[in-house]
């Protein structure tokens, strides 16, 4: 099991290959549907004018994401009233919904690692080769177990997006994942998709 510390160096990224199990340690930021849409519309394509705390949040997440990791996760969090936040359950959400945004977001912020489940498509795979970066697959549904690797909730941005959609900054130790898309152009998901499609065609031809 390979230990990966965040921020991740280019050397470490290049050493990772599809199939490698890893344990991640360091600080990461959660971000899913609302966060990706917000980042792209407000700062990357700039089709929307920043309002309220947009500019301030942008300045504060930039150094966290530079060489860092974004985690597709909508956690269950306790301590919402007292603001003594604790992750109770925090497995990955389906990543493919961020496919239209992810590549641009990785390039803009220099994000080296994307954690989620279900894999991503060709645009993200291309960004993994360019930035360079990798896609880490966490086990979907393993929410109680993954929450144990979250040592601390450092802060939260955009809580007005709702608890699942907010950008939570968390410090993790030994966060378990498997590399399923690497910086060398390999994707386990593309491979399984293609093999299962051939298998389906075979089964349909039997009928």
């Amino acid at each position: 099991m390979q230990q990966v510390s965040i921020p991740i160096s280019d050397e470490a990224i290049h050493s990772l290959k599809v199939g490698d199990p890893v344990l991640l340690s360091g600080t990461m930021v959660t971000g899913r549907d609302a966060a990706h849409k917000w980042m792209v519309e407000t700062f990357i394509k700039a089709t929307r004018t920043p309002i309220d705390d947009d500019q301030q949040v942008y300045q504060e997440i930039k150094p966290l994401l530079d060489g860092g990791v974004i985690y597709h996760c909508g956690p269950v969090v306790s301590g919402l009233d007292s603001q003594e936040y604790k992750f109770v359950a925090a497995g990955p959400t389906t990543s493919t919904r961020e496919e239209p945004y992810q590549g641009d977001v990785m390039r803009h912020f220099n994000i080296k690692g994307v954690i989620g489940k279900g894999g991503m498509g060709a645009k993200t795979l291309a960004a993994c080769q360019e930035v360079p970066g990798v896609y880490f697959h966490a086990v979907g549904g393993a929410a109680s177990l993954i929450a144990q690797s979250v040592l601390e909730v450092t802060t939260v941005y955009k809580l007005d997006f709702g608890v699942p959609e907010a950008m939570w900054v968390i410090r993790v130790e030994d966060f378990p994942a498997v590399v399923t898309m690497d910086a060398h152009g390999s994707s386990l998901h593309a491979e399984i998709e293609s093999e299962s499609r051939s298998a389906l065609e075979g089964l349909l031809a039997e009928s």
Partner: peptide, 10 residues
């Protein structure tokens, strides 16, 4: 054991 959600998406 911990009485925490199996999956965060309930």
């Amino acid at each position: 054991e911990n009485s925490t959600p199996i999956c965060q998406d309930t």
